[in-house]
Design a protein around this nucleic acid. Structure first.
Lengths: 328, 328
DNA sequence: CTGTTAGCGCATTCAT
DNA sequence: ATGAATGCGCTAACAG
């Protein structure tokens, strides 16, 4: 019963006696309106609690100032942090975000993109869950930036990754420096990042003249169902004195097994770092990904492509650096 | 260059020779269209990759099938989990969500609500950050459900809380059972939840005939700047043999101090639980909030109010139960 | 500096 | 069973 009458531009026009066009211009602070008129209109708008209908504006201008963010697994603290940075930077640049979580489900990803097209999103930021997908026909002319994982269409889109191989190598080197000589690894099969991290693991072994044993290289499934079993297998049966987990989700699943079975006598390494790793009973040496930078840069790259397409140049592949955090 | 021509209803009308109205009806599976016509149109729409413009539809129908979610601190794992549940349930009921994080900033909260009004959201789910605010005039007739924190307008809106006092009491009782006799507490001053949890703490002391010492009751600031100092103060200067932290953020800040100064010889309790608390070197007894249930129920309450306002009845205040997880 | 006109894409009367 | 016409709220030509 409060707002019996919704405040629109035409409502303001009626009340002030000027045309809708003038109201619109005044509200958008156009220089083509006399200052006194502007003042009067803006004052009234504030009094009446006018707020623009973003949907109508988006339709009219054919751009919604909204970024569609498609994330493969929001439960992963890494993505949570990236999304947070995306939202902050987007807000700063006067963009809104709509975040969709795909749970690593390729079908969901495609649906999400198409649904967001219906929202007339100005662009996408995507942590891709399907390696093989050709995004060009789906995205059409809509700008997009890919993060964390390389899409098939590298070359068509700006892509923002970290130096996965180097980071993994740093971790494994640290484990070796801590005395480990037989280091098991549980990597991820779903993302390109997992493959690169595995390559870094191998490089570290080679640099340290440790032999490569394929039987202590494991791959987690999407739901992490097999990680606990692999952990015991590596640390007990395979007698590993080191374990490298290739992402956050894998580490936590492995820690469950380590804690439950009170496994000790090995060095633990991980990709992805969280402040609360400091509190773990089993020390974990990890690389911290630049999540804030990744989210911030992604938005900047995207909005540049949206707002100044001519300035954007050819799509780039950027590699951000990671930081080693030694523990134990 | 791919989709040189965007597929709209009028485009489909041209290609099929029928009117836009028929296309619209067919696409919405109206019974007022011949089946064969429907089939033909739906098939073509699929072929051409037609997707409805949600903005146009929302404007026309005056409802966007979108839920505005306003969260006071998304970095808190508790809220992350609730939001996740909200998104899942909303998707199931064919609603979209737009999530805005206010960082406990009251000004941001108000802006967020007004901005989302511009998106014509069908309703709000709000973790309020301002105790004193009267939401009625801002929200108007838009349905809303409040979660985690009691708004001033209880009675006007469905509200979904946990049994804070009881949960805190359970934790403190457990600490006492573990042998603690002088339990310091760091609570939150911003939310109503913090006050209720403090009441639960006091109740537990009373039940166990422990005296209440106001000098070991502290309140965190919003940025948790003072928590580390309080932690040392309580555990060292005040010689507490127990510490109760009233939420996730407070616990983590306290753990920083505990870890840095290697503080031992006390029992730790907390509101909010995370799976990885299992891995901490200092065991923490905590209550797990029903985050999934809270998110799910919030969406159900809200969508009921949106879709069947007559069935919704008077606004309810619901208290969900929490589960104690003993450690140490 | 301001007004008039038109249309974004869609769903919905009211016709037929 | 289908079509014609209208308008949601806004901005962008085009006048003047």
């Amino acid at each position: 019963m409060a707002d019996s009458h919704k405040i629109t531009i035409s409502e303001l026009a009626k009340r002030t006696g000027v045309s809708e066009a003038t109201i619109s211009r005044a509200l958008n602070d156009s220089p083509r309106v006399k200052q006194t008129t502007k003042d009067k209109i803006q004052k009234l708008a504030k009094e009446l609690g006018y707020h623009p209908n973003i949907l109508a504006r988006s339709m009219r201008t054919n751009q919604s100032k909204t970024i569609g963010v498609i994330i493969s697994n929001i439960a992963n603290a890494f993505f949570t942090s990236v999304v947070r940075a995306i939202e902050d930077e987007a807000a700063k640049l006067n963009y809104r975000t709509i975040v969709i979580n795909t749970d690593e489900n390729p079908g969901t990803e495609r649906n999400a993109i198409e649904m967001l097209q219906g929202y007339m999103v100005s662009g996408f930021i995507i942590a891709s869950t399907r390696r093989g997908l050709d995004y060009k026909p789906i995205l059409g002319n809509t700008p997009a930036v890919f993060i964390d994982r390389m899409p098939n269409n590298d070359g068509d889109y700006d892509t923002l990754l970290v130096n996965n191989a180097d980071g993994a190598k740093q971790v494994v080197n640290a484990l070796i420096a801590q005395g480990a000589t037989r280091i098991g690894v549980i990597s991820s099969s779903v993302s390109t990042a997992g493959q690169e991290r595995l390559a870094g693991y191998k490089a570290a072994l080679q640099d340290n003249r440790l032999s490569l044993d394929e039987s202590i290289i494991k791959f987690s499934d999407v739901q992490m169902k097999n990680v606990r079993q692999y952990t015991s297998n590596l640390l007990i049966n395979q007698a590993c004195d080191g374990l490298f987990t290739a992402d956050n989700a894998i580490l936590l699943a492995a820690m469950e097994e380590i804690t439950a079975r009170k496994l000790t006598g090995f060095k633990l390494g991980a990709f992805d770092n969280e402040p609360w790793f400091d509190f773990f009973n089993t020390p974990v040496t990890a690389v911290q990904q630049p999540t804030i930078e990744m989210g911030t840069r992604a938005v900047q790259l995207l909005t540049t492509r949206i707002d100044q397409p001519e300035d954007a140049g050819v799509p780039e592949l950027l590699r951000l650096t990671v930081n080693l955090v030694k523990r134990g």
